[in-house]
Structure formats: C-alpha cells, structure tokens
C-alpha cells in the first residue's frame, strides 16, 4: 500500500490535502478521459453515415435533445480547460515561467470560465 505501484492510480484523483497544481493535474486527466470517450462516440456516430440517410437522420433528431446539448457543452468545456491548462503545462514544463505556474493556472482557469460562458450562451440562448 505504501510503496509505489500502478495500482495506486486512483490516488491521482484524490484532491484532499493537495495544492492547486494537483487540482489542475486531476482536471487535466478527467478532461482527457472525457475527450477520449467523446472521440470514440464521435467515430461511432460517423459510422452511421455508412448505414444510410435513415440511420443518420434519426441520430440528428436525437442530437437536438437537451441532454445531448448539455453533453456537447461538457465536451466544449473539457476541450477549453484541457487545452488552456495544457498550454500552461507545456510552457512551464520546459522551464519557462515555472515560478509563475500558479498564477498561470488562475489565468487559464479564468479565461476558460469566460470562454465556456460565451459558448454556453451561444448554444443555449442562440446569441
């Protein structure tokens, strides 16, 4: 239990007693898993094109349901959070602005929040 082991992987997702760097680390992994799941679902849906217009049309009708819209919003949010935090990690991981990683984290989180709100407004209010 106390020694390193790949079986400890769930500890990666435990934010208790840890600082913002770990919260960003956890968020990046959750959003990466979400985006990977979305990619798989996206490929499955694209596969419906091969099944003809009827199969694809029935999916397009489903895509207008509120639940799918919320799912799409989650994908956009995950992409923004993962992308901007990924930029922060890429910059600081090569020795640039490493001392300011925490400030970069807050900046990327605030910017993510603003972009998510803009997208949410466009998706749900049509503006």
């Amino acid at each position: 239990m106390n020694q390193p082991s790949p079986r400890n992987i769930l500890r990666w997702f435990d934010p208790r007693h840890r600082q913002p760097g770990t919260w960003a680390f956890i968020l990046n992994r959750i959003t990466a898993l979400g985006l990977t799941l979305y990619l798989a679902m996206h490929l499955i849906v694209l596969g419906k094109l091969a099944q003809g217009p009827a199969a694809y049309d029935s999916f397009v009708a489903l895509a207008h349901s509120p639940l799918v819209k919320i799912g799409e919003m989650l994908v956009i949010a995950a992409g923004i959070l993962h992308g901007l935090n990924g930029l922060r990690v890429a910059i600081t991981s090569l020795g640039f602005a490493t001392r300011y990683q925490r400030q970069l984290l807050w900046a990327s989180t605030i910017l993510s929040g603003i972009l998510i709100l803009i997208f949410a407004r466009a998706m749900f209010l049509g503006g």
């Binding site: 600082q19 770990t22 001392r99 990683q101």
Partner: peptide, 18 residues
C-alpha cells in the same frame, strides 16, 4: 507530470519542480 507538489511541501527552499 507537473503537479508541483514537490515544491509545495519542500521544507528547505530547494524548489525541486523548478
């Protein structure tokens, strides 16, 4: 993996992450 926990807990000004 850039979690920066090492520098947060270091009691001795080493700043391992940096």
């Amino acid at each position: 993996h850039s979690a920066y926990e090492c520098s947060a807990v270091c009691p001795s000004n080493v700043d391992p992450a940096w």
